[in-house]
């Protein structure tokens, strides 16, 4: 009886609330040049708490203030299949109204070209390429490229699987530069890999600069190689491209690692989104990525920011598509054994 007495007034209150929300929602998307009264959703294809999620959440805090109407921005995690579930959701389940944007990640150039990303999505931009560096443990005895090249047995590298940057970058570098390597896949995540290094069961790993600063910076780990034309403060190691011996090696590195770097984390909206909204979103992202408060939060979170525009990314994807022979070579190099 007590339960029934409580239910009826509560039901009426909730019904009134639902009507209010329905009326409020009806205004959504009324105009393509304002986001007033709307809620912008960022779909992240990886679990909450990880680096991809962290990036989206810091972005969500500031992005709304650069859009007309100052919408609320929320993050929704849709993890699974290395981000592919989020891609499919955005492709098939999302209204092309500019109120849902996706954070995508691609590591394999061949897979990116095969996915026809430009046919299904408008690229909005990338917060920047988190430079990759190769680290070796103290126990491996490898502190230079020369020592890696002449290692008595191929050093064991760890990765979570073929879609991870930690898998792609070292294998492409080894193929391009003629370095010995044994890739050991199957580790669950960065924490697993870090523990495997500490336990001495693997010798090296390739990590992003973000991950280096947050999880891998240690006196027991030595950087040996970087995949970045720009020098990295505090990490005085050669750039892989600078020691590539011939044009084929340079093209492999460029196509497989350097051009893919900004595509490890980039934002999109589905094709069909009104052009005015695509332009507003691109502009807002570019402004957010140079906002000093955003940059301060990103720095605190150990996130490197070096924005790449939508136009530059679309040009990159088009260039990759024009290199079928190199993509074939890369596919063979990255084939799991």
């Amino acid at each position: 009886m007590l339960v029934r007495r409580a239910i009826v007034p509560l039901a009426i209150a909730l019904a009134v609330l639902a009507c209010a929300v329905a009326c409020h929602s009806a205004e959504d998307g009324a105009s393509s040049t304002t986001f007033s009264g709307s809620q912008l959703r960022i779909i992240v294809g990886f679990r909450a708490g990880g680096p991809y999620d962290l990036h989206a959440r810091v972005l969500a805090k500031y992005l709304g203030s650069y859009l007309p109407g100052h919408p609320d921005v929320i993050v929704e995690n849709m993890p699974g299949a290395a981000g592919a579930i989020a891609v499919r959701h955005l492709e098939t389940m999302t209204k092309a109204d500019g109120l849902t944007i996706g954070q995508f990640s691609h590591t394999s150039a061949a897979d990116l070209v095969a996915s026809n990303v430009l046919d299904a999505f408008h690229i909005l931009g990338s917060p920047g390429p988190p430079a990759q560096i190769v680290l070796f443990s103290d126990r491996s005895g490898i502190t230079t490229i020369g020592a890696w090249r002449h290692a008595p047995k191929p050093p064991r590298f760890a990765s979570s699987g073929p879609s991870a940057p930690a898998y792609v970058a070292p294998l492409v570098a080894a193929a391009a530069l003629g370095l010995p390597i044994q890739m050991v896949s199957g580790y669950a995540n960065g924490a697993d890999i870090r523990m495997a290094i500490d336990a001495g069961e693997i010798d090296g790993v390739s990590v992003s600069l973000d991950a280096y600063h947050t999880s891998f910076q240690s006196a027991d780990l030595h950087a040996v190689l970087r995949f970045s034309a720009a020098p990295i403060p505090g990490i005085d190691v050669p750039d892989a491209m600078s020691i590539a011996g011939d044009a084929r090696a340079r093209e492999l590195l460029e196509t497989g690692v350097y051009m893919m770097a900004p595509l490890v984390r980039f934002y999109v909206v589905p094709r069909g989104t009104p052009a005015a909204r695509v332009a507003l979103l691109r502009e807002a992202l570019e402004k957010t990525w140079v906002d000093p408060h955003f940059l301060a939060d990103a720095q605190a979170a150990g996130l490197a920011i070096d924005p790449v525009s939508a136009a530059a990314l679309e040009q990159t994807v088009a260039t990759l598509g024009a290199r079928p022979a190199t993509l074939r070579d890369l596919r063979a190099i990255l084939e799991p054994h």
Binding site: A81, A84, I85, R88
Partner: peptide
């Protein structure tokens, strides 16, 4: 997906089962 080569196992082509 298997943890080593990311080969689908018993997923029946359903992306939602890949993890």
């Amino acid at each position: 997906l298997d943890p080593f080569r990311a080969e689908p196992r018993f997923t029946f082509s359903q992306l939602s089962l890949s993890d």
